[in-house]
Design a protein around this nucleic acid. Structure first.
Lengths: 154, 154
DNA sequence: ATCAAGCGTACCAATCTAGTCCTGTATGGG
DNA sequence: CCCATACAGGACTAGATTGGTACGCTTGAT
């Protein structure tokens, strides 16, 4: 399974929570309370997100975090890149020239690159607004089931 | 980084090596020698691949492995599924109902599913033949660089 | 019968991730 | 002016996952 780190998952949750009051300043403890994610983890997420300039931080007594951009302008690809680093499938890709000792392997990097680009495109086409938005509307009981194509995911 | 396991990477290498003599029977030690991948690892890969019916195994003294299908009929998605299991980004997706304890999170599963499907499509569109073939043609220098999001510090 | 080669399982080691905590710094209110 | 609040940054620990290895068993040709 191609695994996405939990931190990224949490980040999406936190960001989508923030997008419900876009422009408002949210403190880390408040976000932890409203999302159910442990507070230290929320802080860790927000720190990484602020480093990536996806959220704006304000220090001090009345401080907190706010979305740096509207939710429509934040892609899932950016969130993943902020949390997990560059989006790449293979170790060969991220500049590790010494990593893959087998040289003849590299002959197929072009193929991986093609896959990588397709995946990146898929991730960029989904915004935070898409994830957070009328979720309750689409999230009917059982709606998820037929949302998944037959045989997909396996 | 969305990480693909090394086993999968090795599997592609081994399979592409086998596709150079499609139809022939290759022994695990011979494949290990010709690819540079450690022999036990090759064995592990081939076992998983034979379980997934991507390669046909032949036991006994003159045994070995052969591609079960022509390289054009084997997609990267199948290889990944054989090695790493179902293709899915989040833990929520693969049937783990108790996995994500935060219920309000699940409101956005529809969004993840959309991403998952796009990724799966991308992986299915690339075949083993595409990976093994004249890849050097498509592997332009720098093509990889602009794939990685700018400022995505690891 | 013997030997080569795959099959299966279990096991160990290394790596990576998740989660926590601590110390510092800035801001605003009393 | 002082203190409480909240972010910033890093270090650290525990856990899980993965990669790699080692055994013994089964199969089939010679």
């Amino acid at each position: 399974m191609i695994r996405l780190s939990k931190l990224t998952d949490y980040a999406v949750v936190v960001l989508s929570r923030m997008s419900q009051d876009a422009g408002a300043v949210h403190t880390a403890p408040a976000l932890a309370r409203s999302t159910g994610v442990p507070e230290p983890t929320v802080q860790k997420c927000l720190k990484l997100l602020s480093k990536a300039a996806l959220v704006a931080s304000r220090r001090g007594a009345a401080g907190g975090y706010a979305l740096a951009r509207p939710a429509e302008a934040i892609s899932v690809a950016e969130i993943i890149a902020a949390m997990d680093g560059p989006i790449a499938l293979t170790a060969c890709v991220d500049g590790a020239s010494g990593g893959c000792g087998v040289e003849r392997v590299c002959a197929m990097r072009g193929g991986w690159d093609r896959v990588n680009r397709a995946i990146k495109g898929a991730l960029e086409s989904v915004t935070l607004a898409d994830m957070a938005a009328p979720s309750c509307t689409t999230h009917l009981p059982g709606a998820l089931t037929d949302f998944i194509p037959a045989g997909a995911g396996n």
